[in-house]
Structure formats: structure tokens, C-alpha cells
Amino acid sequence: MKKIFTLFFLNLAFLGLAQQTLSVNAIPAGYYNTATGTGYTLKTQLFNIINDHTDRGYSGLYTTYLTSDVDNYYENNGTMLDMYTEKPTGSECEYVYGGGLQDDGTLGNAECDRYNREHLIPQSVFGQNNFPMYSDAHFVVPSDKYVNAQRGDLPFSKVNTPNATYSNGSKRGSNLNSGYSAGYVGTVFEPIDEFKGDIARMLLYFATRYEDQVASWSYTMFNGTSTQVFTNQALNVLLTWNAQDPVSQREIDRNNAIYARQNNRNPYIDNNNYVTQVWGLPLSNPTFSDLNSVAVYPNPTTDIINIQSEVTLEEIEIITINGQVLQQIKQPVLNDNTYTISNLPKGFYFIKLANASQSVTKKVLVN
């Protein structure tokens, strides 16, 4: 979401992508004290912090929404804030909580008929009535019933040619198989720019909160691991949206309200630097392959670069921004699923990782 208040300041670093930590008074003292690692180690530390939250039940979501999803930012009139129908600069269909339009099993054949609950990771992925994910307000949001059904189980990505556009500009259609969304052919759902970062951070929360189960779930956006979790294509979309749409006051307030109910937080809202510390930076011109488990961290770094891979690499190339091959490491030594590179001069590099038939390119900054 865009900035509505100016109580917090975001400094963008590294080509405008890395975001500063937001200071939020509602974070309990010491809440993130054990989040000291990098890469997937950090993600596991965050999992241990936000795990075992209080489950308020599926019906309890509507109670949570009374404080977590109220429009105090646009029309500022206390109506339901729905990311699929909200028009940040104009009037829109509005729902009043308790106003008789909550889903009762009828209507929903057009926008503005009914509102219900939208699982941003579809409930079919983990099974209906499988708690606590079924009722986790950090990624289950209030939504127009019709648009919710129109999105269905579709992955989030950049639409090329829409086959449907909804009242606030959200759309459904074929994926734009180029640029940051390259690597997927199929139908996708794209929210408006105002909420792309919000949704990205909710999905990254899901990947972290359910790290101990996600590898067993099948979904178009998932790669079958508990580490990276997302396919390269899906991850690049989420990292790009996270960078393009910084954390907003609305997200901070929502995080605080859900914490008051569930007793856990979305760490990627509290400290947006965690996103790049776990997953790295998005690729502006990605090269996708089946090397889905590869992660490069920390990024940015001041010295050591770790390359965590469940696949044996045959070659690692360190390439400068000018295209010069600085290092070419053939048959690199793998220790505990990790390759290590050190003593690189300060600068911006492309790291090309390859085996016999596949390759993937990562970006890294050495400060």
C-alpha cells in the first residue's frame, strides 16, 4: 500500500530495492532477539518465534477483521478494507461489517453482493478445516465474494492479456512471460499496485510460519522445499512486489491488530530487511531453471557469500556488472549443502550457477 501517514520513514538502498527496518512500538521487547542468522537459518529462527500462535477459529476471523481490516486510510469511514475492490483514489463498492452483506451462502454472482474470507494461499492446498492455517488472519483476508471466486486457486503474478478486469483494476489473465514475471505459462491473478507488497509479505509470512509443513503441499507457486518454498518465478514476483510497494502504515496497524488476537506477528512487516536476508534480491532479468533450491546469502554481504544448494553444482562464475568473469570455479567443493566464496572486492556481481544441463543467475552486493 502507498504511504498515507508520514510517521515512519523508509530509506531505500541498493538500487532502491532494500528497505530499512520500520520501528513499531507494538513489537514486544526482545521479540526478535533470536533472529540472528542469515538465509534459511534466519527463516527457521523466525518460524520458531511466530510458531504456535493462538487460533481464534474460522468464525473468529470476522471478529479479528473488526480491528485489522477497517478503512481508516482511504475513505476513512470504518468500512471493510478489501484489497480486491478498494480504489485508493476514488469511490468504490463498500461493505459495512455486520451490515447484512456477510456471506450467507447466497448471491456472490457479481461484485458488491457479499463479502467473505479469502485464503491468499488457497485452502485447497493444505485442506479445508486444517487448523491453524485455515483461520490464520495474517494471510486470510476479507474479500468481495465474487472476486474471491474469480481468483480461485490462481497464482499471483503479472498479467499480460487480461480476460477479466474488476472494479478497482485487479485483473485475471495470461501471465506476462517476460521481465520479472518470466518463467510461467498459465493464467494468473494480479492485484493493483497499491496492494502488491501487502500480498507478497503475506505469502512470505505463510512460507515462514508453516515451514515445517509446506514441503508436503502442492501448489503452482511452490517448489516442494521447506527452504526456498516458492518456485524461482513466483519468488521473483514476490520479491519484486515487496521492493516496489514498501511497508505501509495500514500494514503496521494490521500486524498489531492481528498480534493482539493471535499472539504472533508478520516479521516481514516489522523488519522488511528480513525479506532480502532470507531470500536475497529480485532479478530484473531472471534466468530460470530447475535449480529451485539454490539460495545465495547474506545479500548484501560484507565478506562471505554462502550458496546453499541441494543440487551439486559443476561451475560457479562470478561476473562483474560490466560482464567480466572475475572468478570461474569448476567442480566447487560442497560442504553441508553449502558452497562458500570470500574475499571479493566491494561491488555488484552476477553469480552464475550451473550443472550439466541447468543454470541460474543470482545478483549480490558486496559492501
Score class of each variant (00 low, 15 high):
T165Q: 05
S157Q: 04
T165L: 02
G179Y: 13
V159N: 09
Q150C: 06
G183W: 01
S174H: 10
F156K: 06
Y146I: 09
V159G: 09
P155F: 00
R151Q: 12
S157F: 06
A182I: 15
V147W: 04
G173R: 11
Y180Q: 05
K171A: 10
G152E: 11
A164H: 07
Y146Q: 07
G152V: 11
K171Y: 09
N168R: 02
Q150E: 10
D153A: 15
A149T: 05
S157G: 09
S167A: 14
A182C: 11
Y180N: 04
N163C: 02
P162Y: 06
S178L: 12
P155W: 00
V147N: 08
K158V: 14
L176F: 11
Y166E: 01
T161Q: 06
A164N: 07
S167Q: 14
N177S: 06
K171V: 04
L154T: 00
S167C: 15
S167R: 13
G152N: 14
F156M: 10
S178Q: 13
N160T: 10
L154N: 01
N148C: 13
V147P: 04
N160I: 05
Y166Q: 03
D153F: 10
V159T: 12
N163M: 00
R151P: 09
N163L: 00
S170A: 13
A149L: 00
Q150K: 13
N160W: 10
T161S: 09
Y180M: 06
R172G: 02
S178W: 09
A164R: 08
N163F: 01
K158T: 13
Y166N: 04
S178I: 10
N148M: 14
Q150R: 13
L176R: 12
N177Q: 02
A182E: 14
N148V: 07
A164F: 07
Y184V: 01
Y180E: 06
Y166L: 04
A149G: 05
N168D: 07
K158S: 11
S174D: 12
T161P: 03
S157H: 06
N175D: 14
S157R: 08
N163T: 07
S157A: 12
S181E: 08
N160S: 15
Y184W: 01
D153P: 05
G173S: 10
N175R: 05
G173C: 09
A164D: 07
A149I: 00
G179C: 12
N175F: 07
N175P: 06
N168F: 03
T165P: 01
N168L: 02
G179W: 13
T165F: 00
V159C: 08
R172Y: 06
G179E: 10
V159F: 11
N160F: 12
A149H: 02
S181V: 05
N148Q: 15
G179R: 12
S178T: 15
S174M: 11
N177T: 04
S170P: 03
G183R: 01
A149M: 01
T165K: 06
A182D: 14
S174T: 15
K158R: 15
L176K: 12
Y184R: 03
S181Q: 08
S174C: 06
L176Q: 14
N148R: 13
N168V: 03
R151H: 13
S167T: 15
Y146P: 08
A164T: 07
T165M: 02
S178G: 12
G183K: 02
K171R: 15
G179P: 13
Y180C: 03
S167E: 13
L176G: 05
N163D: 08
V147C: 09
